[in-house]
């Protein structure tokens, strides 16, 4: 579908919020929580924070929650009954105010969950999500979207992308069919003069490494243990990077509730030693350097080859969230610049 351009004012957006609310939709948007800004359910535009470069966590929870029920079961008196989820009951969700890198991350998640076969629960959630992005007027030293194939005004993954062209005045790019439906719910969209361009309102994010050099360099470096040990000495082996990442989707499956309980899917991270530990005690990745290597290899080598998509959108969240400043940008740069 061809992108349509319109103008929309803050007042109209507010009306859209109350319209969605009246339809019973869940609205997720960046919101101040304590000292941090993160995605949470909101009801009005007032609650939404758009000043930050990035939220702590991504919006992936809308389609890949921290913990979700796959199905429930009753195991009693030698009989087992399985109750599948009612996918119709999944919430209709509008995600508002996420950055173009986060919008693009939904394409990565789709590639992970649906590359070989469709993941029904993920797909059902995805179906019910509409994405209204807001392009970036500012970036920080952790941003590298332009090195990861995106940009501060990138439209990949958005249904509508907004760019603030004057205080309270937005250029709305209507990108998808879902976007058109959403826009149809707004009265008072104004036509956009041809002279209006978003470029002047976007952050400048200079490319910092040559992406095409990363995958071949990684393949070369795989067996260079010293390189990986050096890269990961600081790493504490936690899962903060994976859990804030909009494109990380590794998961665990756990049963809870005894005989009458649920089978759950929950987040997991390749940074944990337990992730690959065999019951026998053998671990194919026994040390942290190998786990860090896996993180980079997976996103920048395996995924491009197997799922035809980069496992990273350059949002920089992992670097900001890391307790010990494992800055992925630096690591990628040194990978790209490693001598053959």
């Amino acid at each position: 579908m061809e992108t349509e351009k319109k103008l929309i004012g803050r007042g109209e957006l507010e009306k859209l919020f109350s319209h969605w609310r009246s339809k019973g939709k869940r609205i997720l948007a960046p919101k101040k929580i304590g000292a941090k800004i993160d995605f949470a359910a909101v009801t009005t535009l007032e609650e939404v924070c758009l000043d930050q470069v990035q939220t702590v966590q991504s919006a992936k929870t809308a389609v890949f929650p921290r913990v979700e029920e796959l199905f429930s079961f009753k195991n009693k008196d030698g009989r087992v009954e399985i109750r599948e989820r009612d996918q119709g009951a999944l919430p209709e969700t509008v995600i508002f105010g996420l950055r173009p890198c986060d919008d693009a991350a939904f394409a990565v998640l789709k590639a992970i969950f649906n590359w070989d076969s469709q993941d029904p629960l993920f797909s059902a959630r995805m179906e019910k999500v509409a994405v209204i992005g807001v392009s970036c007027p500012r970036a920080d030293e952790y941003c590298f979207c332009t090195s990861a194939g995106g940009g501060p005004g990138g439209t990949t993954g958005s249904d509508i992308l907004l760019t603030e062209i004057a205080p309270g005045e937005y250029l709305a790019e209507i990108i998808s069919e879902k976007g058109r439906v959403l826009a149809g719910e707004a009265a008072g969209l104004k036509p956009c003069p041809a002279s209006v361009s978003k470029e002047a309102h976007l952050a400048k994010v200079e490319p910092v490494f040559a992406l095409e050099r990363v995958a071949p360099a990684l393949a070369r470096l795989f067996d260079d243990n010293a390189f990986w040990v050096e890269q990961s000495l600081r790493c504490l082996g936690c899962g903060a990077c994976a859990y804030v990442c909009p494109a990380c989707a590794c998961f665990d499956i756990q049963d809870e509730g005894g005989g009458s309980g649920q089978r759950l899917r929950c987040w997991d991270s390749c940074g944990f030693g337990l992730f690959t530990l065999h019951t026998s005690g053998h671990n194919p990745r026994p040390v942290q350097s190998q786990r860090w290597r896996q993180r980079l290899m997976h996103k920048f080598s395996y995924m491009p080859e197997r799922q035809q998509v980069l496992g990273c959108v350059g949002c920089g969240r992992c670097s900001r969230a890391c307790p010990v400043d494992m800055n992925i940008l630096e690591h990628l740069r040194s990978v790209a610049e490693a001598k053959p």
Binding site: I33, D38, Q57, R66, L236, G237, C238, G239, A240, A242, Y243, W267, S269, F272, P323, V324
Partner: peptide
Amino acid sequence: RCLKCYACRGA
């Protein structure tokens, strides 16, 4: 809000 990322434990 806890994500069980175990950064507290790692640190």
